[in-house]
Amino acid sequence: MTSPTAELERRARLRRAMIATSGIYIAFAVLVVALAMISPAFRSPDNLVNIGRQVAILGIASSAMTFVIILGEIDLSVGAVASVSGVITALALSAGIGPLAIPVGLAVGAGFGLLNGLLIVYVAVPSFIATLVSFFIAQGLALTLTTGQTILFAADGFRLLFATGSVLGFSSAFIWLVLVFGLMGWLLARTRFGAHLYAIGGSQDNARMLGLAVDRMKIVIFTLAGALMGLVGMILIARIGNARADGAIGLEFDAIAAVVLGGTALGGGYGSILRTIVGVMLIGVMNNGLAILNVDFNTQQIIKGVLVIAVVLVDRWARNIKMN
């Protein structure tokens, strides 16, 4: 129906956009190959398992962030909410309430998520401010409850369940990650809920016109993200056997980085768990590889900062090309 030359032009533009977006992956491939060549430790099979263990927390946080970003919003409270959930779970465990600590931890996370959702929907606060407020309160709560100390707890079953146990050679933390990826992937790709999430993220106004429950979706997504942060908090404390107020500090940034690196666009409507898994692996491999090369945590932060800005810029550029 469009003229053939216009169609060719459009295709050429799309191709240019594709090349622009794939630049990051090319850079990443170069990084992996370089790491593998430089470092025998990096390419050992043990190290792969190692990377899998390291990415559990990031992976779960990133899949929550994926939902939030597909919705067209952002969640800056991720790290603080995970920390405070871990701290409260640890306190509950040390108070001796046993398995009841698990729902407590989840409820703390979900509660903060619900707060985010309610603020965004009913007070009409932009999500970055609403979640900044939660960040503030959660961080303060974590610091106050711990009074700067490390909270110790003795609960071997808990630790086995959430992190240190192993099934078929996989750590239980990794199993949780797989479960969450599975759950979130299923929700997103295979359910009406997921279909409506994409629709709402693509255009809230259109989705409203089509009769979809936009407000309810926002509240549900933020609450779900919060509950997953509760899980992250528990894995966090189970792994090291104690809880600290700054346990998951900066996690939101790594999660945003992983989602964005995976190729999910800010602004909503696009993205998938599969992409996020790729993004999480990128960050995981990068952290691991750089650590093996003795590049410290802080340099990694710089690299991630540059990467996020670069990827978002390239993505924006590519989309401008597509929209001509």
Binding site: I74, L76, F128, G250, F253, I256, L266, N298, T299, Q300, Q301, I302, I303, K304, G305, V306, V308, I309, V312
Partner: peptide, 14 residues
Amino acid sequence: FIVTLGTMAIATGA
């Protein structure tokens, strides 16, 4: 907020 979040990571790291 994304740009300055990136700058924040870079500045802190640096």
